[in-house]
């Protein structure tokens, strides 16, 4: 149906992003709802996670089944630094978590990028599961299946007492700010020379080698970069959720960013972001109604795979492209 090397460039520019961020920023003053702030915060965090994942999947063509390992490394680093070293400052914890997650991705990625396609995917899965087993086994330091409770850190030196207030106002804007920075950074990276190389690797990695570019090395860089974003997401998630556990390292959780990228559109920059919001909102309201949420999600996955392979955003941008009669366009 669609040509294999189809990829999408922006046309509407920065406008949708500016509108989006302003809209998100207006949520606390307009609604004051802690629950909504929590949900949106979660959606943003998962969007960062999915963007990191999609860096490898949509842009480099590498499908990882074990990405929860780096998100989880970020979460656990945050929780353990806070618990054992009594660091209260969010900034320091954030830095620590991102560094540890990136190192994890660097080590695992170094091994995995030597393999292609299904072997790559299975190897990432295996490493993810080994990390899970370690987390569960070393229950004396990681809390095992009980997980670790994460208290409220200080933001820029300010301490907070009420968790509800913390989630709705200061931390919410903090998350939003970091998200904006992530979007800008990722945008610059993906539209640069580096981003073009990644897409070339996705389309035909053998040819890239013949052009004199070390595809293995660039895949590794992409892996490390992906780890950075996953670490950021993990560091934001830990204080937001207040509790982290081995389920955040389990491969079932690795399927979440894949699902998000697929729904939103993995060939579009905005895809993972929109996909994340859809995912969080649908998941929360479906689980409130029925215990058969897997049926619902499974049907969505099948539907999207068969009919909307480019996801919501991909579909919209293709439609826009046809309207504007240009060959490659996007949001």
């Amino acid at each position: 149906m669609f040509p294999k090397s189809f990829h999408i460039k922006p046309i509407l520019g920065l406008l949708p992003y500016i509108i989006g961020i302003v809209a998100l920023g207006l949520i606390p003053p307009l609604t004051g709802s802690t629950y909504l702030a929590y949900l949106v915060g979660l959606a943003i965090v998962l969007a960062i996670f999915a963007m990191g994942f999609n860096l490898l999947f949509g842009y480099t063509g590498l499908l990882s089944f074990g990405h929860a390992a780096y998100f989880g490394a970020g979460c656990y680093a945050f929780a353990m630094l806070m618990k054992y070293y009594h660091i209260q400052s969010f900034e320091l914890l954030f830095l620590g978590s991102v560094i540890i997650a990136t190192l994890t991705a660097a080590v695992i990625g170094y091994v995995c990028v030597r393999y292609i396609k299904i072997y790559f995917s299975l190897l990432t899965l295996a490493f993810g599961q080994v990390e899970y087993a370690l987390v569960v086994k070393l229950y004396n330091i990681t809390g095992g299946t009980d997980g670790i409770r994460v208290m409220m850190p200080t933001l820029l030196g300010f301490t907070f007492k009420d968790k509800g207030f913390f989630v709705t106002w200061p931390f919410y804007y903090y998350i939003l700010a970091i998200f904006t920075i992530c979007v800008i950074v990722l945008w610059i990276i993906l539209n640069s020379h580096f981003g073009k190389i990644l897409q070339a690797i996705r389309d035909n990695d053998v040819r890239v080698n013949f052009l004199g570019v070390s595809e293995r090395r660039y895949k590794w860089y992409a892996f490390i970069l992906s780890g950075v974003f996953c670490g950021v997401a993990g560091a934001l998630f830990a204080p937001l959720n207040g509790h982290i556990g081995p389920e955040h390292v389990y491969w079932g959780f690795s399927a979440t960013p894949l699902f998000i990228a697929l729904i939103g559109g993995h060939r579009v920059f905005l895809g993972p972001i929109i996909g994340s919001f859809i995912y969080v909102l649908v998941r929360h309201y479906v689980t409130a109604f029925t215990i058969y949420w897997e049926l619902f999600f499974g049907a969505i996955v099948i539907l999207f795979t068969l009919l909307f392979p480019y996801g919501v955003c991909g579909g919209i941008s293709l439609w826009l492209a046809r309207r504007m009669k240009s060959a490659k366009t996007s949001l």
Partner: peptide, 29 residues
């Protein structure tokens, strides 16, 4: 479900079978 996607990219095949997995899990429930 599977025949339409034989010609497609590998990731789609994985995703489709994953969807079937989810659906069958709830059907057994």
């Amino acid at each position: 479900l599977l025949r339409p996607i034989y010609k497609r990219e590998e990731s789609y095949q994985l995703l489709l079978t994953f969807g079937i997995l989810l659906v069958l899990s709830d059907v057994t429930k």
